[in-house]
């Protein structure tokens, strides 16, 4: 393989990885936007989404098959179910804490994460579950560059979801309300915006996107387990920080950049693949130190 082939291949791989990070990072950044909470349970919603998608696929595969059509239906069902779960979590665990100090709600988020993880651990016995699909290994080659159909479908789906989200936030009434709530909750209340409903919608969408990513990851990689959300949760958080937490476009950009950085990071001479995560989280620290607002974030003055 010539160096430029490897280079192109790394870009393709980085994009696929980045698509997952971006979808999960969106949930982080949207929730942070409206209630200033780092929702550490978000990675576990990704995991829950994978398991719900797995269950849904076994239900619908009889009719739609276990290829992409069946997986899409399972993904939509999983997005719906996990979206509702996200709303319930917000109502039960976060809503009563909104007026409490920020640290309390952060600890609540960690607790929710542990609840989801341990529930999945108990239900699955900690075993890896094989996510069986009919997806083939096919693809096409451009020179030495190899693109599988699955990768193309995956990146396209992620792109469609992100464009839909962007349109929702910029063009619709609720999207406008969401941006308004992110700027000033009290003012929104005075203007008659139902802030609670906007927060609920935000959680629904954020959790739904994580579920979409979880289901697609399960189908693409072929196995799921209760701890799968932990590492990707941290990495999506890193992506959100790189892009500027609170910024939706920033999360997409951050996800793609992180995916590419990881892909290239594995190939740095004399630094083997085992240093990949060290590399990733070093970037997190560097961004936090050098440009805490990220690429697209706005610096925010804490109001007293």
């Amino acid at each position: 393989m010539a160096w430029y082939d490897l280079f192109l291949q790394m870009i393709v791989d980085g994009l696929v990885l980045g698509a997952f990070y971006a979808l999960v990072a969106l949930g982080y950044t949207m929730v942070f936007g409206v209630i200033k909470l780092l929702n550490f349970a978000h990675g576990d919603l990704y995991m829950t989404g994978a398991f719900v998608g797995f269950g849904a696929l076994s239900l619908v595969s009889g009719v739609f098959g276990a290829g992409w059509p069946g997986i899409f239906i399972a993904m939509l069902l999983s997005m719906l179910a996990v979206g509702c779960l996200g709303v319930v979590i917000e109502r039960v665990a976060y809503h009563p804490m909104l007026t409490a100090p920020r640290l309390s709600i952060l600890i609540t988020a960690l607790a929710v994460s542990l609840v989801l993880q341990n529930a999945a651990l108990t239900l699955t016995g900690g075993q890896y579950t094989a996510f069986r699909t009919d997806l083939g290994f096919g693809g096409f080659s451009l020179g030495n560059l190899f693109l599988s159909w699955n990768q193309i479908v995956l990146v396209t789906t992620a792109a469609v979801l992100m464009i839909a989200l962007e349109l929702f936030v910029s063009k619709t009434l609720y999207g406008r309300a969401m941006r308004a709530v992110a700027i000033d909750k009290d003012m929104c209340r005075m203007l008659g915006i139902n802030v609670s409903a906007v927060i609920a919608i935000t959680f629904f969408i954020g959790s739904g996107l994580a579920a979409a990513a979880g289901t697609m990851a399960g189908a693409y990689y072929g196995s799921i387990w209760y701890f799968m959300g932990f590492l990707i949760g941290l990495k999506a958080f890193t992506a959100a920080v790189i892009g500027g937490i609170g910024s939706i476009t920033g999360a997409m950009l951050g996800g793609l950049i992180l995916g590419l950085l990881e892909s290239f990071g594995t190939h740095i001479p004399f630094i083997g693949s085992e240093w990949k995560d060290v590399f990733t989280f070093t970037i997190l620290i560097l961004v936090l130190v050098l440009k805490p607002t990220g690429l697209l974030g706005k610096s925010e003055v804490e109001r007293m």
Binding site: D13, A217, Y221, F230, L231, G272, S273, E274, K276
Partner: peptide, 17 residues
């Protein structure tokens, strides 16, 4: 001679090398 981190799902970069 490579090492993967436990819990990693995406080995694309490793497969490339």
């Amino acid at each position: 001679f490579e090492v993967v981190n436990k819990g990693e799902q995406d080995f694309s970069a490793l497969v490339n090398s």
